[in-house]
Amino acid sequence: MADDDSAISRRTLLSGTATVGALAAGGYGLAAATAQSTDRMPPALAGKSVLITGCSSGFGRLSAMHFASLGAHVIATMRNLPRPEAESLAEEAQAGKLKVDIVEIDVLSDDSVTKGVAEAERLTGGPIDILINNAGIGITGPIELQDMAATKLIFDTNVYGYHRLARAVLPGMRAQKSGHIFAISSQLGRVIVPGAGHYSPTKFAVEAMAEQMAYELVPHNIGVTVIQPGGYPTDIWKKRNVYTKALRDRVSEERKAGYPALVARMGNEDGSGRTADPMDIPRAMAEIIEMPVSERPARRAVHPGNKPQLAINEISAKTQVDWLGNTPYGPWIKAVHKA
């Protein structure tokens, strides 16, 4: 956690001539965040606008309902509207008298992202306060078996999709000098399991992209947090199997023969035996938003079980501070890592 000096140091990094008072007037600045009660349960997000990608199921849908239940105006996005998942989400939100608008965004499309974010800002009446980059896919199997169709699809979804959304919301966030971006990564964004295809490569890229943005956005009072879930029982397993079975069917027998044990698992993993509560993810993000801006973490590992990435997170942060802490980039690096 940052001490008072760290908070003051971060304020001095803000670009332009904005004062702490002006930040507070924006409703999302340091003064406003610091003034929040530390013992309020549950956290209150009234007045905040939240855009979430991939809300048809899993963490996205749960986050949409959770943030809305805390008072936020949620823009829940998904592709291929209309669809049953959108209808059921709208019905659930209406039953709970929650403010959830459903907007079509296909994270693979520049045009769809641009139009979707513009519609979200119209519905919320201004820039987005919180972006949750969540939409993603998995395609398993050895790297050699990942043909270019599978490779392009997973990178376009898991990496370029996050980039598209960040670029779309950041002009508004910078204009209001406030905001926060969450990137849903994975513990596999730091550690690697053989046979997981390009999932780790894409999540490693997400980790790097988010951390770089975190440094660059310090002067704008915009935070970035990487969420690193472990394995949870969501629909990602079923969806991953669809992509993986299609890949397995089109890969040559000669290539598959090189990896019999790994190929045998392709498209047959259902996530059974995983009992952790997927609500851990939206709860963790809500807790982070309730923190003063200067104290929000660069990364949060979320899972009740083993978290092998923690040691890597720690040494990575130390390495960045030791390497660049005394350079002109030092104030940004130290602000992000609370050094």
Rank of each mutant, 00 (worst) to 15 (best):
V50S: 03
I75N: 03
E253W: 05
D147M: 09
S9M: 10
S69Y: 03
P43W: 12
P308Y: 04
R83Q: 14
E290C: 06
A120Y: 01
G16E: 11
D147N: 13
G116D: 11
D111H: 07
A261T: 09
G325I: 10
A35Q: 09
A95H: 07
Y160G: 01
Q187W: 05
I143T: 08
A276E: 09
T12M: 15
Y160P: 00
S272A: 14
R40L: 15
F182H: 03
P308I: 04
L81N: 04
I105P: 01
A72C: 10
W332L: 15
Y199P: 00
L108I: 04
S57M: 09
T124W: 02
P42V: 15
D101L: 05
G197Q: 04
I52N: 01
T140W: 06
Y160D: 09
A24K: 04
Q228V: 02
V226N: 12
E216R: 08
I102Y: 05
L310E: 04
V113G: 01
E295V: 01
M173Y: 03
D249Q: 12
N221R: 06
I236N: 05
M285V: 06
R265C: 10
K307I: 05
E254T: 10
T157R: 02
G26M: 07
R167E: 14
K256H: 09
M285D: 06
G21E: 12
L324M: 13
T275I: 12
I288T: 05
F182Y: 06
D270S: 08
W323T: 14
V117S: 06
L131F: 08
H73K: 15
S37I: 06
E314R: 09
V224R: 02
V113N: 03
N313K: 01
I128V: 15
Y259T: 04
A335P: 02
D156C: 11
L62P: 02
